[in-house]
């Protein structure tokens, strides 16, 4: 299968037009059901009370933070191995979405932590790992934007995505270890009690909804990046043609 043909804006637009309505509809349906269940149907937790409702937007955001990073690493590998232009723009298009989900995970975690822990920020192992993941997203985006040549930015950030992918498990391990060394044992953890089906279903619905929302956002942003590249190429062509005319 020749994937290069999807890299032209018009072909990708056609592919995207086929997926887009399904992804958008599915996202709306899942998020609608998920929010209805999360806010109205699901019971309050016996320990955390109503504050447990933050879980339904916090935990899926954490899943997305990791899921989008995995996609970023895959796009990075495709960029370096096949030098594929679609992979290049995909990395650039997806990184801000991943950073947004990571930020939301941190912010909602902090808002959940205040009533549960009594503090806005606890150096809890999970939150700390997500914070570092957020830093890696920021580095990725800064590196991607740091060059005049878009291809160089894409390839450099692809290397960083892969280096990050092999390092993140090690960082996670070391932070967990560091945390058990320093953490007083009494802190209540954000993962809460063993999960009951009445909480699991809305959580899963929100997770699927977030994933589909990611697909929708990625499709729109990839199209925009492809058009921007094409525009850049057209401007270049015109500029190089002008002196001759």
């Amino acid at each position: 299968m020749n994937w290069h043909r999807f890299a032209s804006p018009s072909n990708f637009k056609r592919l995207s037009a086929r997926i887009f309505p399904w992804a958008a509809g599915g996202a709306a349906l899942c998020l609608g059901c998920g929010l209805y269940q999360a806010l109205l149907v699901s019971p309050p937790d016996y320990q955390q009370g109503q504050s447990v409702r933050i879980m339904y937007i916090h935990v899926p955001a954490a899943w997305m933070a990791m899921f989008v990073y995995a996609n970023l690493a895959l796009a990075g590998a495709a960029t370096l191995v096949w030098r594929h232009p679609l992979a290049e723009v995909a990395g650039r298009a997806m990184a801000p979405i991943g950073a947004a989900f990571t930020f939301l995970c941190l912010a909602t975690g902090s808002l959940w932590g205040k009533p549960m822990w009594g503090t806005w920020w606890e150096w809890d192992a999970r939150l700390t790992s997500v914070l570092i993941l957020f830093f890696v997203y920021l580095a990725y985006m800064a590196l991607n934007n740091a060059f005049d040549d878009a291809t160089r930015g894409a390839r450099a950030s692809a290397v960083l995505a892969l280096v990050g992918a092999v390092n993140l498990p090690i960082i996670k391990f070391s932070v967990d270890w560091w945390n058990t060394l320093h953490q007083p044992a009494s802190v209540m953890r954000l993962d809460g009690p063993a999960i009951h089906p009445s909480m699991l279903w809305p959580l899963l619905a929100m997770g699927v909804g977030y994933t589909l929302l990611f697909v929708v956002l990625a499709l729109v942003r990839i199209q925009a990046e492809l058009i921007e590249r094409r525009l850049g190429a057209l401007v270049q062509a015109r500029l190089s043609a002008e002196p001759a005319a």
């Binding site: 309050p44 109503q50 933050i54 916090h58 959940w112």
Partner: peptide, 10 residues
């Protein structure tokens, strides 16, 4: 249940 600020802000 008293957590309005945190839940709705999130």
């Amino acid at each position: 249940g008293g957590y309005a600020v945190y839940v709705w802000t999130s």
